[in-house]
Write a protein that binds this DNA or RNA. Sequence first.
DNA 1: CAGGTGCGTTGCATTCAATGCAATGCTCAT
DNA 2: ATGAGCATTGCATTGAATGCAACGCACCTG
Lengths: 253, 253
Amino acid sequence: MSQTVDRALSILPLLAEGPADLGQVADRLGVHKSTALRLLRTLHEHGMVYRQSDQRYRLGARLIALAQEAMENLDIREIAHPHLVRLNEQCGHTVHLAVYEEDEVLYIDKVESRYPVRMYSRIGKPVAITVAAVAKLLLADLPEAERRALADRLDYPMYTSRSTPNPAAFLRELEKVREQGWATDLGGHEESINCVAAPVRGADGRVVAAMSVSAPNVVVTAEELLTLLPLVRRTADAISGEYSGRNTVKDPA
Amino acid sequence: MSQTVDRALSILPLLAEGPADLGQVADRLGVHKSTALRLLRTLHEHGMVYRQSDQRYRLGARLIALAQEAMENLDIREIAHPHLVRLNEQCGHTVHLAVYEEDEVLYIDKVESRYPVRMYSRIGKPVAITVAAVAKLLLADLPEAERRALADRLDYPMYTSRSTPNPAAFLRELEKVREQGWATDLGGHEESINCVAAPVRGADGRVVAAMSVSAPNVVVTAEELLTLLPLVRRTADAISGEYSGRNTVKDPA
DNA sequence: CAGGTGCGTTGCATTCAATGCAATGCTCAT
DNA sequence: ATGAGCATTGCATTGAATGCAACGCACCTG
């Protein structure tokens, strides 16, 4: 809607790929260098970009700090955290909490496995939306129309042979997840990693977040991991109860 | 420099305080509501803000994801991480890595204490710049003029009775830290928490990051914590060596 | 050391996009 | 029903964003 702001914001994802100099930024934006310079300067004043000693621009510290504040304001995270820790103490595996927001599912909390073999993931990172167990739960709860539209819009990268291949398969999987009230990812993202996940619901029954337990094959088999399902669901339900109980219902994401 | 972008970016810290509706945003920016609406819409298209079901605006998911990418691009973090983990395994306490960037010092990595009593901190959070041990190291390395100017510009909140009270005291402390090559924070931020920190240097000898070990009084006394200093310094030196060795020297922050 | 190339930066006239206004539409509470 | 309070829209005006061309600067090169 606002051309200038639009251009300025387009610089950020561009810099996320790596540092760039003025010329590169101007080229990628399709504007004159002087225009790009002014935009970068404004971003700089706000700490959103940083100028390295080699004159190139990077994403800045304020951006990181802002994102931090954004996450700390999520009530669901506050409420869920102790439950995640307790679950981790009980099973020892990596525990994740994720939310959905406009085409993205991202981890907002994580408790690390106590086993030496850990899976790679980071708070704030968007998850593999077509295969992750938490993503399935969050998307399965969307209104039918939105779910269909989204499924069509997504890419379906074949991380492994068991990745969800296309919109039809994905919608079928979501339907199944929706009915059973829990989800799994058995090697759909990383060949040797399995997850079980359960939904956290608000007072109105809508899914506001999803949590999962993940472990590599070398530690437990998929069957063993599935025996944790009741525990995961109980934990998710406990969070749901606390969340719907004491808060005026705000939007989840 | 660019008024429109400037206004748009000013919305973000405002929303970081908590959700706000259109009227509030317009008021705080001092612009007409229609103007604020257009700015918010543009921010929305880029995923920087999210519209809750109650119509109010929040910071958005893309912001968090961007910040994540920003941190993953920091080479120093990649290199340091395994060293931080090893140090944590050796001493059991919380280990932090921090960098300085234009008036802010922020944690870019952290390994949690293995003791049940943990200190509160989060990756991406700006640190208490006038008292934190890592901040002292990073600022002590700035050129004299910049250091003085910065010291004057800062606030000196008295978190505890041992917090740094004013610019003069701060500059004196920085001078000391600069000479001895390491720093401490003994209850300057939280009455019962102590830290020891050491600098990570680039090939040119400039301080590019700082790392610290923190522990509450109830676990170890300040004297006991100080016995870890040689270990902390060795770790920092190891990171320095690896950092200056294998990378073309980029800007630290 | 002269000359040249490749950057970032600046001042300025033009133009087009951002602005505020006023009117409209919505939702909710009384 | 009625109106208050909010978001939203179309439009005329104006002022800010734009691209150009000139400049400065550092770094090579012959």
